[in-house]
Amino acid sequence: MDLSIVIPLLNEEESLQELYDWISKVMESNHFSYEIVFIDDGSTDRSWDLIESLGLKDPRVKGIKFPRNYGKSQALNAGFKQVNGDVVITMDADLQDSPEEIPELFKLIKEENFDLISGWKKVRHDSKIKKNLPSKLFNAAARKTSGLSLHDFNCGLKAYKNEVVKSIDVYGEMHRYIPVLAKNAGFSNIDEKVVAHQARKYGKTKFGMNRFVNGFLDLLTINFLSRFGKRPMHLFGLLGTLMFAIGFFASLYIGITKLIKLYHHEPTILVTDNPWFYIALTAMMIGSQLFLAGFLGELITRSKNQEKRYSVSKQINF
């Protein structure tokens, strides 16, 4: 199979039929063998009914339904597990991503051997305050921490080799940083392509300020996990050892100083009356806790099975 098109959605009943017709037209005109995987992330409208109707008419339409809203990352992760195409395309269901971009994205992956191509919505039709400004901040921070010189990490329109989506684990709000996850998984041939951005035709954006905060927190998580996710002791053990050593040598210095003064019959105070004694003791306690955190992190990393982050209530055509 040439293509798998993965489309996560939440309450997009007005756009689904039009999106399906548009994709089908592009696929047929380019003679692609393909599948369309819709992931209904807990919609409360008729989105799933429409997906079922499309699936009954066209076996290439496949659907996954979540019993409640788990988030776009979980929806993408569920779709990635099911895809069969050599090239995987992700796009949003709100008609702001153009299916006309798919043939060129397919060519870049299949013929030019890129691992991942990220769309760049160079000209946007979103509110500058609600979407454009946060996106610029996200992208600047992601470029700085990841080393990837992409302009639009959060663009929903992306193309991947099949082995890329099978190798990454998308969770939290990590869909924003899939190129970073791919790079951390060893896929370095990553680039971008300018794509058309359509004005929203139906409904309203799902973007909120909570995603602004969560996105930055997930960026910090990716940065931490890429460096210390496999060996947490390398971070916590080092910090713990340094803190404990500072506290230990500080308390040793306090004790030796007191003994010297006693030996020379100089006036002195009790060790417990010296505020530096408590600072040194606190440093030793923090160091011990950090070391223990690293040790526990190592045990969890080696023994804990991955928790189930979502459940599927219905599927069609799988």
Rank of each mutant, 00 (worst) to 15 (best):
Y34R: 01
V165C: 04
N214H: 13
N184I: 05
K121A: 15
Y263F: 15
P59F: 07
F216P: 00
S188I: 05
K107Q: 10
Q74M: 14
D273P: 00
W276I: 08
N139K: 09
K206Y: 03
N223A: 13
L262K: 10
G186H: 08
E192N: 03
W48G: 08
E28V: 08
I102P: 01
A159N: 03
R124S: 14
C155T: 02
I5G: 04
A142K: 09
I102N: 01
F153N: 07
L296C: 04
L290D: 00
I23D: 02
H125I: 02
V312M: 08
L116Q: 06
L238W: 08
I23Y: 09
G297S: 10
L16Y: 06
N317F: 13
Q74S: 13
Y202R: 06
E35D: 10
V164C: 03
R231W: 07
L133P: 00
H31I: 08
E192C: 04
Y278V: 02
A283V: 03
L116R: 00
K57G: 09
I316V: 14
G229S: 05
G287C: 06
K57T: 07
A159L: 11
E18T: 01
T90E: 10
K25D: 13
D92N: 10
L150E: 03
L290F: 14
S47W: 11
K261C: 01
V26T: 05
E18S: 13
S303A: 05
Q315M: 15
F236E: 01
S43Y: 11
I269W: 05
I64M: 06
L235V: 03
W48V: 04
R46D: 12
F318V: 11
G203R: 11
I222S: 03
Y34D: 02
P8A: 08
P67N: 14
V123K: 14
L262C: 02
F207Q: 08
K72L: 12
L235K: 05
K161C: 02
K258D: 04
K144T: 07
D41G: 02
R200F: 04
D94S: 09
L148P: 10
D21A: 13
W48F: 13
K81G: 11
N305Y: 04
K230D: 13
P134N: 11
I316Y: 00
S251N: 09
Y20T: 01
L235Q: 02
E101P: 06
T301W: 06
L157G: 00
S53T: 12
I109W: 04
L148W: 10
M27N: 02
